[in-house]
Amino acid sequence: MTDSQSPLIVEDATIGYGRVAISEGLSVDIPEGEFTVILGPNACGKSTLLKALARMLKPTAGQVLLDGRDIHTQPTRAVARRLGLLPQSPIAPDGITVADLVARGRYPHQGILRQWSAEDERVVAEAMAATDITELGARGVDELSGGQRQRVWIAMVLAQQTPLLLLDEPTTFLDITHQIEVLDLCAKLHQEGRTLVAVLHDLNQAARYATHLIAMREGDIVAEGPPAEIVTAAMVDQVFDLPCRIIDDPETGTPLVIPSAGNRGAASRARELEADALVKDLV
């Protein structure tokens, strides 16, 4: 065990799918107790990095360390008691109720003999209260709105009782109200002492909620640090190819990115739209 402050470290890792490497020689420290947001344009490798952190992808070179030891050599259930994951598109079994889905989060704490202990029951109730879904317990997950459903999934991950939470694009597909609702919930979980890592699309939301930002482009890390320090017009242009001005968010004082008006050619915008559509098709 190292005496490192970072519970989760990527060391000189090559990560990708099959033979296609998305990131090579990537090194990242996830600082303890921070709300880290990974951001970057489509196909920049941010979700790939999160998958590597969540041990869903095994680096072909280098390693991912959880508490100083290679995450892939640790028993996966032990890892699941340290690190919870909300994937991009989890599947709710047909007809499952909210309470039953949240209860699935107890898996790493249960066994053949211990299937539903008093503690399991208590923790599930707490997780549902923390995400404000207690009243929905008997409802079917398929009856819920997108925002409610996302809170249910977060409750399931909370029931895992892990100090580390990884969230892969938790706000995608939600309308703006529910995006803020989910991010507020994440901020609350962070304030309660958990270490959060989330992949987000929205630069301004990332700047407002994150305490630590990791900006990526083409598989590499371009900048990392507190949003107030690293979110500059130069960085945004470098990462997103987006000329902009940065002002203080009138609500929170965090950096607010204002894209510049009219100084980009229509041709370059069309090219980008095309590229985006291509990436969406691939994904």
């Binding site: 699941a80 008691r81 919870g84 994937p87 991009q88 709710a92 299937q115 991950v157």
Partner: peptide
């Protein structure tokens, strides 16, 4: 129990510690 967790999809099951 592992099969039950797998019904949440491969990603969630991995997160829950299912091999």
């Amino acid at each position: 129990r592992g099969m039950d967790a797998l019904r949440l999809g491969e990603a969630s099951a991995t997160g829950l510690g299912v091999r």
